[in-house]
Design a binder for these strands. Structure first.
Lengths: 147, 147
DNA sequence: TTTGCTGCAAATAGTTTGCAGAGAC
DNA sequence: GTCTCTGCAAACTATTTGCAGCAAA
C-alpha cells in the first residue's frame, strides 16, 4: 500500500512538475492507474470514477491517459482482441500472463528475459529499446471449473 | 520459394477441405499471405490486389483474413499503435523484432523461449496456450542514417 | 442449380478533436 | 486574471455486417 501511495504521489508530482493542473478528475484517474488493480481498461476507469463524478466524460479519461503515457508513468497493454488495459503501478515493460477466460492478468518473474534481449540484439543487429511479452492461457481457477 | 508455394497450396487445400470456394480474389489474398513478404497489413494487401482486381473491396480482404485465421493458417500481429499486420508464412506464434523507424519486421531465432514458457507455467499455475513476444528497436540501416 | 462469395454502403466500436464554459493556480 | 482542463457532441479510423447480384462447384 505504501508502494501504491508512492506511485500516486510520483505521478501527481510529475504532472505538477510539468506544469499540468491537478484537478479532482485527474487525481481520480491517477489514483486508479497508480493502483492498477486488475490492470483496468479505459471503460473500467470511467465506470469507477463515474460513481464519484457522474458527469465524468470518457474523453477526459482518454486525454489523461495520453498525457500520463507521455510522461512514461503508465504502461499500455494492447491486446490481440483490440482491447487496451493499463498499468500505472509498473510502468515499464514486463511480462504478463493473461487468462483468456476470466481476463485475469498476472505479472510473473522471469530472469531469463534480459539475456534474451541481448541475444536478440546480437542476432539481428537491432538496437532494442522496448519489448512486449505476453502469455495467454487458462488460470488454475478457470481450469477447475466445469465449463 | 518452394516453401512459399507449399504454404499457398496448404492454405488453399485447407479452404477447399472445409467446403470453401476458391475464388480468384481469395486466391490472390492467400498468395500474398502465404508469402507474407514484409508482414503486410490489410491495407497493403488490398492495394496490391487492386492492381489486378480494381473492384476488390476492403471488406473482402477482411472477411478472408478472418476465415483463414479461423483455420489457423495466418498469424495476426497486433501492434501497440493499433495497426495489424499478418503472417501466413509462419502462422504459429514466434518472436518478432520491429524497427520503429522503417517498420521492418525480422523473425529472430530464440531457443530460450520454450524453457521460459515452462518457467511461466510452473510459476503462475496457468495452462499456457499461446504467447506473443515482440522487441521494438532500431535496425542497423536506420541507425546508420543521419536523421 | 445451389450455396457461398463479392462489392457496395451503412453500421459499429474505440478513440480523438473542436469548442465554450468552468476551475486550478 | 490567465490559461489549462472538462464535458459535450461531432469527427475519425478500423473493422464488421446486411443485402442483392454473381459465380464456383
Amino acid at each position: 500500500m505504501s508502494d501504491r501511495n508512492t506511485r500516486f504521489e510520483t505521478i501527481i508530482g510529475k504532472l505538477r512538475d510539468n506544469g499540468h493542473k491537478i484537478t479532482p478528475q485527474r487525481m481520480a484517474i491517477v489514483r486508479i492507474l497508480a493502483e492498477s488493480l486488475g490492470h483496468p481498461s479505459v471503460e473500467e476507469i470511467h465506470e469507477q470514477i463515474r460513481q464519484d463524478f457522474p458527469t465524468m466524460s470518457l474523453a477526459t479519461v482518454y486525454r489523461n491517459i495520453v498525457l500520463i503515457k507521455s510522461l512514461g508513468e503508465v504502461l499500455e497493454l494492447g491486446f490481440p482482441d483490440g482491447s487496451n488495459r493499463y498499468d500505472g503501478n509498473k510502468p515499464f515493460p514486463h511480462p504478463h500472463v493473461i487468462c483468456i477466460r476470466c481476463k485475469k492478468i498476472v505479472d510473473p518473474d522471469l530472469d531469463s528475459l534480459d539475456s534474451m534481449k541481448k541475444e536478440v540484439a546480437e542476432e539481428t543487429d537491432f538496437k532494442i529499446l522496448n519489448h512486449r511479452l505476453d502469455f495467454f492461457g487458462i488460470c488454475s481457477n478457470c481450469m477447475a471449473e466445469k465449463v
